[in-house]
Amino acid sequence: MTSSINSPGKSALRRCVLLMVGGLLLSSCTAGPVTGSEATASGDAGRPPPSPAGTSDVGPGTEPTTHDGRTVLPARPEDCSSPGVVGIRGVLGTVADQLQLPIAKVSSKAGLADVTCTFALAPIPAGQVPEPGNSLLIATTTANDEVAFKKLELPRLMMEPKPVSGLGSKAWYSLNRLSDSTEYVLEVVDGLTVTRISLAVPAAAAPVDGMQQKLSAVAALP
């Protein structure tokens, strides 16, 4: 006689099968998608961690450039050490009574190397830069060769330049009256080097007497 399907042995087997299937279904439903960190951990196992970006020093050939294509170079302490503040004050007099230590900027472009030293004529609030219309600027431009030197087209930015004798191979002086400031400017050529000394004061300030002689004396300072 055939055994009944509801026999105790078969019932126990059926319960075991159902429990196993239910367990598999439950695990597949409750397992979530792989997170990004888990995917990275599994996919990048054994790889070294990425190095931090933007923390390395600027290397040769990767210097920043300005909007006009000038390459900005690191300034050195000696770039604006001469002439010094004390010597300049002694020459310029009262207009330079509050002369501040210089801020240096160094750049190059098309065979021309520039070092610009800006001396504020008054104290500068923390985090700010000298006011162009109230400062002394000494800029030195050195050309690699005659071809680069001719690009300067001297004298530069002078309203009424007049020759000055006794300084370098050539020199010019000019008084530039602008809307916001008055500039006393001297340019001196020495070989392939040009030194431009410019004293700018607010337009409303009283005229400074004897500036051609004073700027010439600044140019002669060691």
Rank of each mutant, 00 (worst) to 15 (best):
M1A: 14
T2G: 15
S3A: 14
N6P: 11
S7M: 13
S7H: 11
G9C: 12
K10Q: 13
A12S: 12
R15H: 09
C16N: 12
V17E: 11
L18N: 07
L19G: 12
M20Q: 07
G23F: 02
G23E: 07
G23H: 03
L24V: 13
L24K: 07
L24P: 10
S27C: 09
G32C: 15
V34P: 06
T35H: 09
T35N: 10
T35L: 08
G43Q: 13
D44A: 15
D44S: 15
G46M: 01
R47S: 14
P48S: 09
P49R: 13
S51T: 12
G54K: 05
G54I: 05
G54W: 09
D57G: 14
V58W: 11
G59N: 13
P64A: 01
T66I: 01
H67K: 12
D68T: 04
R70E: 02
V72W: 05
A75Q: 06
P77G: 06
P77Y: 15
D79F: 10
D79K: 02
D79S: 06
D79V: 03
C80F: 02
V86M: 11
V86T: 15
G87S: 09
R89P: 07
V91Q: 03
L92R: 09
T94G: 10
A96E: 06
Q98K: 15
P102C: 03
A104N: 05
K105F: 14
V106L: 01
S107G: 03
K109D: 01
K109R: 13
L112Q: 00
L112H: 00
A113Y: 01
V115S: 14
F119I: 04
A120Q: 02
I124W: 02
P125S: 07
A126W: 12
A126G: 14
G127D: 04
V129T: 12
N134A: 05
S135I: 05
A143R: 00
D145E: 00
D145T: 01
L152E: 05
E153K: 14
P155R: 04
L157C: 14
L157Y: 12
M158S: 02
M158Y: 02
P161R: 02
K162I: 11
V164Y: 08
S165G: 10
L167G: 00
W172V: 00
W172Y: 05
L175H: 12
R177S: 14
L178T: 08
L178C: 06
S179N: 10
T182H: 05
V185Q: 13
L186W: 00
V188T: 12
V189H: 03
V189K: 08
T193G: 02
T193P: 03
V194T: 08
T195M: 05
R196I: 09
I197N: 04
L199F: 04
P202F: 04
A203V: 05
A204I: 05
A205C: 07
A206Q: 09
P207E: 01
V208F: 10
Q212D: 02
Q213F: 12
K214W: 12
L215P: 04
S216K: 01
S216T: 03
V218E: 06
